[in-house]
Amino acid sequence: MSVSGARVLLHALLLGAAAITLFPLLWMLSVSFMAGGEASAFPPPLLPAHGTLANYRQLFGQQNIGRYLTNSLSLAAMTTLLSLLLNSLAGYAFAKLHFRAREPLLRVLLAALVIPSQVAMLPLFLMMKWLGLVNTYAAVVVPAMAGIFGVFLVRQYALTIPDELLEAARIDGASELRIFTSIVLPALRPILVTLGVFTFLGSWNDFMWPLIVLTDQGLYTLPIALATLSREHVQDNELMMAGAVLTVLPVLALFLSLQRYYIRGILMGSVKG
């Protein structure tokens, strides 16, 4: 095959694949602007006959989706901030500070990566009940405040900080806390952005645990609210699409603006073995 022939074929394949991956998302957007019942027709329409914001108005007006949006945002933000703090402290300690039992601890953590989190879920619920935290945000945030993956991600990156830098600061009499805030944190910035994006997306998209532990409707996150709504409003196709758009859009925007950092996280995560 000639080079130009190959190029045409290649781009045809690429465009076809992109059409398949993007179509559901674009269709979701389009249907969210349709009038109630419009999409349940044959043949299925691709574009709204008369674009309308009625679905969004109903979601914010009657379905209280603003509340869920705020819940999701504050939960994800809180989880991200706290886990960045705890994971960076620990990741740095495991990379650069020598303390007793460091190496065996590291091995235990690494081995524990293979345990699926669902194993812990049932007793975790009983524990939350015992602590009186069921149906509070703390039940969602506290267990997510530190994670093995996060600690390792930071550790890998922190290994690249030159020891001389830290030693020099120690000789100058800086406290360990001071060294951490003024030297280590700035050096870790790129990986913290990566971890932050990961944690935020993970927390935003999380489903099973919040589903179990949050019973009060006022505390629902967007995915839980959407799953609940979609069981009640099976027939309201257009309304559900508007809800899906509101759920997906914030994370998609975050990803698009911080794509570089996110992909670095994937690559670092995949070489951990």
């Binding site: 620990a90 740095y92 300690a93 303390f99 812990a120 007793p123 093995i148």
Partner: peptide, 24 residues
């Protein structure tokens, strides 16, 4: 440095122990 290492790692380890290892 040894104490600092423990102090820095402790919060995360505590969370992971209490909310992961103990439940498992």
């Amino acid at each position: 440095v040894g104490y600092a290492g423990w102090a820095f790692a402790a919060p995360a380890l505590l969370i992971i122990t209490v909310f992961f290892f103990v439940p498992v």
